[in-house]
């Protein structure tokens, strides 16, 4: 009888350990991870934009200062995400993006070089595209309904800053044969994302959010007109003003969107910190169950 009881104890403890182990491996990405990585994608295009502004000696909004600050923000966010408990696959993806950043970063700390701008943009382009994909993977992993809409908002932010970087590169006189094609694609993509958000279910993209989104319409139109122009005239300060206004407004929308979507997650989402607490609860429950069974056997 005693032998049987010990066997049962071992079995339940193993079950408990296994539960703990599985729980650790499948820890969901948190909403914060998604936000920080989405921010990294946006900030990286902003850094490229500032690089071009500094290169052409534009002083509006002090791009030199912004460049430095934004590099530090990206570094900080990577550190934050790494410090969170991500599963192995997602962590590998984040590290892959971070390694790309580390390879590009030194160029941004040097004096802007017109000859290197085109090559640098290609690298940033590949890196931010991957960054965006990983942000999307993190969003899916959170299991939060509507988190994809949060990613859509940040994608719109990314596209707006990409358009600004492209435009300012052209304004600096950096020739790129693919410019027109890329501008057309980016403008189409921003229009597509904008329409998708405007058409989204109000449960996930509220009327208030849609109203706020509408306030960016003129800035997007202005960018479309400026970037598609072939006149050879450029407005770098105005482009910087519009890009920053879009960026600020979209970050405000992002905060509203996060509040809306993530406030309704209790049924299917547990933030990482709470999950650890829950794992403790599960273990406690199993021990209680073992004790109950033992009492029953006795």
């Amino acid at each position: 009888m005693l032998h049987q009881s010990v066997r049962k104890k071992v079995f339940y403890l193993l079950t408990a350990a296994l539960t703990m182990f599985c729980s650790e491996v499948s820890a969901n990405a948190s909403a914060q991870d998604v936000h920080e990585l989405a921010d990294i994608c946006m900030y990286s295009q902003r850094i490229l934009k500032d690089y071009a502004l500094v290169g052409m000696s534009v002083t509006y909004h002090d791009p030199k200062k912004d460049l430095k600050e934004n590099i530090n923000i990206v570094d900080k966010y990577f550190k934050d995400i790494e410090g969170h408990k991500l599963n192995e696959k997602l962590l590998a993806e984040v590290l892959e993006v971070e390694n790309s950043w580390k390879a590009i970063r030194p160029a941004f700390e040097q004096e802007p070089d017109k000859k290197k701008m085109s090559e640098l943009r290609e690298k940033v382009e590949a890196y931010t595209t991957r960054c965006d994909q990983v942000a999307d993977d993190l969003a899916k992993d959170t299991g939060i309904k509507g988190e994809q809409d949060v990613v859509l908002v940040s994608e719109l932010g990314l596209e707006s800053q990409r358009l600004a970087a492209l435009y300012l590169m052209k304004a600096w006189g950096v020739a790129d044969t693919s410019y027109e094609k890329e501008v057309a694609q980016t403008v189409d993509q921003t229009e597509h994302l904008y329409q998708e958000l405007m058409a989204a279910d109000e449960k996930f993209v509220s009327k208030d959010i849609k109203d706020k989104l509408k306030t960016t319409e003129n800035e997007f139109i202005a960018f479309g007109v400026m970037a598609k122009s072939t006149s050879g005239r450029f407005m770098p300060s105005m482009a910087e003003k519009s890009a920053s206004k879009i960026f600020t407004t979209l970050r405000e929308i992002l905060a509203m969107e996060q509040k809306l979507v993530e406030a309704t997650v209790s049924g299917y989402f547990t933030p990482v910190a709470d999950e650890k607490k829950n794992r403790g609860m599960i273990l406690k429950d199993i021990i209680t169950l073992i004790q109950y069974r033992e009492e029953e056997s006795a």
């Binding site: 450029f234 407005m235 300060s237 105005m238």
Partner: peptide, 9 residues
């Protein structure tokens, strides 16, 4: 700086 750009726009 903006004045120059607005006139260009």
């Amino acid at each position: 700086a903006l004045m120059i750009d607005f006139s260009e726009s």
